[in-house]
Protein backbone atom coordinates (compact mmCIF):
# COMPACT_ATOMS: atom_id res chain seq x y z
CA UNK A 1 0.00 0.00 0.00
CA UNK A 2 2.77 2.42 0.96
CA UNK A 3 4.58 1.64 -2.30
CA UNK A 4 1.39 2.21 -4.26
CA UNK A 5 0.83 5.63 -2.68
CA UNK A 6 4.46 6.65 -3.17
CA UNK A 7 4.23 5.65 -6.83
CA UNK A 8 1.07 7.65 -7.33
CA UNK A 9 2.50 10.74 -5.65
CA UNK A 10 5.65 10.55 -7.79
CA UNK A 11 3.53 10.31 -10.92
CA UNK A 12 1.48 13.30 -9.82
CA UNK A 13 4.58 15.39 -9.14
CA UNK A 14 6.09 14.50 -12.50
CA UNK A 15 2.86 15.22 -14.41
CA UNK A 16 2.14 18.53 -12.72
CA UNK A 17 5.78 19.59 -13.18
CA UNK A 18 5.70 18.75 -16.88
CA UNK A 19 2.37 20.38 -17.63
CA UNK A 20 2.61 23.46 -15.49
CA UNK A 21 2.73 26.61 -17.59
CA UNK A 22 6.22 27.73 -18.46
CA UNK A 23 7.00 31.02 -16.82
CA UNK A 24 7.30 33.38 -19.78
CA UNK A 25 9.26 36.60 -19.54
CA UNK A 26 7.04 39.71 -19.64
CA UNK A 27 6.45 41.01 -23.17
CA UNK A 28 6.60 44.53 -24.45
CA UNK A 29 3.73 45.84 -26.53
CA UNK A 30 5.18 47.79 -29.51
CA UNK A 31 2.07 49.98 -29.67
CA UNK A 32 2.32 50.95 -26.00
CA UNK A 33 6.08 51.49 -26.35
CA UNK A 34 5.68 53.79 -29.38
CA UNK A 35 2.85 55.64 -27.60
CA UNK A 36 5.13 56.17 -24.62
CA UNK A 37 7.89 57.55 -26.84
CA UNK A 38 5.55 59.93 -28.64
CA UNK A 39 4.18 61.22 -25.35
CA UNK A 40 7.43 61.42 -23.39
CA UNK A 41 9.73 62.91 -26.04
CA UNK A 42 9.38 66.39 -27.50
CA UNK A 43 8.82 66.47 -31.25
CA UNK A 44 8.72 69.63 -33.33
CA UNK A 45 6.37 68.21 -35.98
CA UNK A 46 2.90 66.71 -35.70
CA UNK A 47 3.34 62.97 -35.21
CA UNK A 48 0.63 60.60 -36.46
CA UNK A 49 0.42 56.83 -36.31
CA UNK A 50 0.70 54.89 -39.55
CA UNK A 51 -0.90 51.52 -40.04
CA UNK A 52 1.18 48.36 -39.83
CA UNK A 53 1.19 47.61 -43.55
CA UNK A 54 2.49 51.10 -44.34
CA UNK A 55 5.12 50.84 -41.59
CA UNK A 56 6.41 47.57 -43.03
CA UNK A 57 6.42 49.06 -46.54
CA UNK A 58 8.38 52.12 -45.39
CA UNK A 59 11.07 49.85 -43.99
CA UNK A 60 11.01 47.37 -46.88
CA UNK A 61 9.99 44.55 -44.53
CA UNK A 62 7.31 41.91 -44.48
CA UNK A 63 5.59 39.72 -41.92
CA UNK A 64 8.21 36.95 -42.17
CA UNK A 65 10.51 38.85 -39.82
CA UNK A 66 8.15 41.07 -37.85
CA UNK A 67 5.53 39.89 -35.35
CA UNK A 68 4.26 43.36 -34.59
CA UNK A 69 5.14 46.97 -35.30
CA UNK A 70 3.96 50.45 -34.38
CA UNK A 71 5.25 53.55 -36.14
CA UNK A 72 4.60 57.27 -36.01
CA UNK A 73 5.49 59.58 -38.90
CA UNK A 74 5.82 63.34 -39.08
CA UNK A 75 4.04 65.34 -41.80
CA UNK A 76 7.13 65.36 -44.02
CA UNK A 77 8.17 68.82 -42.87
CA UNK A 78 10.75 67.09 -40.63
CA UNK A 79 12.55 63.75 -40.50
CA UNK A 80 10.98 62.90 -37.13
CA UNK A 81 9.90 59.30 -36.84
CA UNK A 82 9.29 56.49 -34.34
CA UNK A 83 9.21 52.76 -35.01
CA UNK A 84 9.05 49.90 -32.53
CA UNK A 85 9.31 46.38 -33.92
CA UNK A 86 8.77 43.04 -32.25
CA UNK A 87 10.77 40.54 -34.30
CA UNK A 88 10.34 36.80 -34.62
CA UNK A 89 13.87 35.61 -33.82
CA UNK A 90 17.56 36.53 -33.73
CA UNK A 91 17.96 36.38 -37.52
CA UNK A 92 14.92 38.60 -37.91
CA UNK A 93 16.38 41.08 -35.44
CA UNK A 94 19.43 41.54 -37.68
CA UNK A 95 17.21 41.90 -40.75
CA UNK A 96 15.05 44.56 -39.09
CA UNK A 97 18.10 46.41 -37.76
CA UNK A 98 19.54 46.57 -41.29
CA UNK A 99 16.19 47.77 -42.63
CA UNK A 100 16.17 50.56 -40.04
CA UNK A 101 19.72 51.55 -41.01
CA UNK A 102 18.65 51.58 -44.68
CA UNK A 103 15.67 53.78 -43.79
CA UNK A 104 17.99 56.24 -42.03
CA UNK A 105 20.23 56.33 -45.12
CA UNK A 106 17.21 56.91 -47.40
CA UNK A 107 16.00 59.75 -45.20
CA UNK A 108 19.48 61.29 -45.17
CA UNK A 109 19.55 61.15 -48.97
CA UNK A 110 16.07 62.70 -49.11
CA UNK A 111 16.63 65.52 -46.63
CA UNK A 112 20.25 66.40 -47.49
CA UNK A 113 19.30 68.92 -50.18
CA UNK A 114 15.61 69.31 -49.36
CA UNK A 115 15.77 70.31 -45.66
CA UNK A 116 19.46 70.34 -44.66
CA UNK A 117 18.68 71.33 -41.06
CA UNK A 118 17.00 67.94 -40.56
CA UNK A 119 20.39 66.29 -41.04
CA UNK A 120 21.16 67.06 -37.37
CA UNK A 121 18.42 64.65 -36.32
CA UNK A 122 19.53 62.09 -38.90
CA UNK A 123 23.20 62.29 -37.97
CA UNK A 124 22.95 59.91 -35.04
CA UNK A 125 19.37 58.75 -34.43
CA UNK A 126 18.59 56.32 -31.61
CA UNK A 127 18.56 52.75 -32.92
CA UNK A 128 18.33 50.15 -30.15
CA UNK A 129 18.06 46.37 -30.43
CA UNK A 130 17.26 44.28 -27.38
CA UNK A 131 15.96 40.72 -27.37
CA UNK A 132 13.03 40.55 -29.73
CA UNK A 133 12.68 44.31 -30.04
CA UNK A 134 14.09 46.98 -32.33
CA UNK A 135 13.52 50.68 -31.62
CA UNK A 136 14.21 53.60 -33.95
CA UNK A 137 13.53 57.18 -33.01
CA UNK A 138 14.56 60.23 -35.04
CA UNK A 139 14.23 63.54 -33.22
CA UNK A 140 16.24 66.28 -31.51
CA UNK A 141 16.28 64.83 -28.00
CA UNK A 142 18.22 61.55 -28.13
CA UNK A 143 18.81 61.58 -24.35
CA UNK A 144 15.06 61.59 -23.62
CA UNK A 145 14.51 58.81 -26.17
CA UNK A 146 17.25 56.66 -24.65
CA UNK A 147 15.85 57.21 -21.16
CA UNK A 148 12.35 56.13 -22.27
CA UNK A 149 13.67 53.06 -24.07
CA UNK A 150 15.79 52.06 -21.05
CA UNK A 151 12.73 52.33 -18.85
CA UNK A 152 10.66 50.22 -21.25
CA UNK A 153 13.37 47.54 -21.42
CA UNK A 154 13.81 47.56 -17.65
CA UNK A 155 10.15 46.66 -17.25
CA UNK A 156 10.50 43.57 -19.41
CA UNK A 157 13.78 42.37 -17.88
CA UNK A 158 12.72 42.75 -14.24
Amino acid sequence: MKNYIALLLTAVLLFSGGCASKKTSPKLDPAAAADKLVSSVKFTDEMSPVDKTTALKLYGLDQSAVSDVKAYESTGATAEEIAVFEVKDEAAQEKVKKAAQRRIEDQRAGFRDYQPKEMTKLKNPVLVTSGNYVFLCICDDNAAVQKSIDSLLKNISS
Binding site: M1, I5, L8, L9, A11, V12, F15, S16, G18, C19, A20, S21
Partner: peptide, 20 residues
Protein backbone atom coordinates in the same frame (compact mmCIF):
# COMPACT_ATOMS: atom_id res chain seq x y z
CA UNK B 1 -5.31 8.30 2.99
CA UNK B 2 -6.07 6.68 -0.40
CA UNK B 3 -9.07 8.97 -0.87
CA UNK B 4 -7.00 12.08 -0.07
CA UNK B 5 -4.28 10.94 -2.48
CA UNK B 6 -6.82 10.26 -5.24
CA UNK B 7 -8.37 13.70 -4.72
CA UNK B 8 -4.88 15.20 -4.90
CA UNK B 9 -4.14 13.31 -8.11
CA UNK B 10 -7.36 14.50 -9.75
CA UNK B 11 -6.74 18.08 -8.63
CA UNK B 12 -3.14 18.04 -9.94
CA UNK B 13 -4.20 16.54 -13.27
CA UNK B 14 -6.85 19.24 -13.64
CA UNK B 15 -4.32 21.99 -12.88
CA UNK B 16 -1.77 20.55 -15.30
CA UNK B 17 -4.31 20.17 -18.09
CA UNK B 18 -5.55 23.72 -17.62
CA UNK B 19 -1.98 25.04 -17.80
CA UNK B 20 -1.33 22.97 -20.93
Amino acid sequence: IVCVCCAGIIYSIALGTAAM
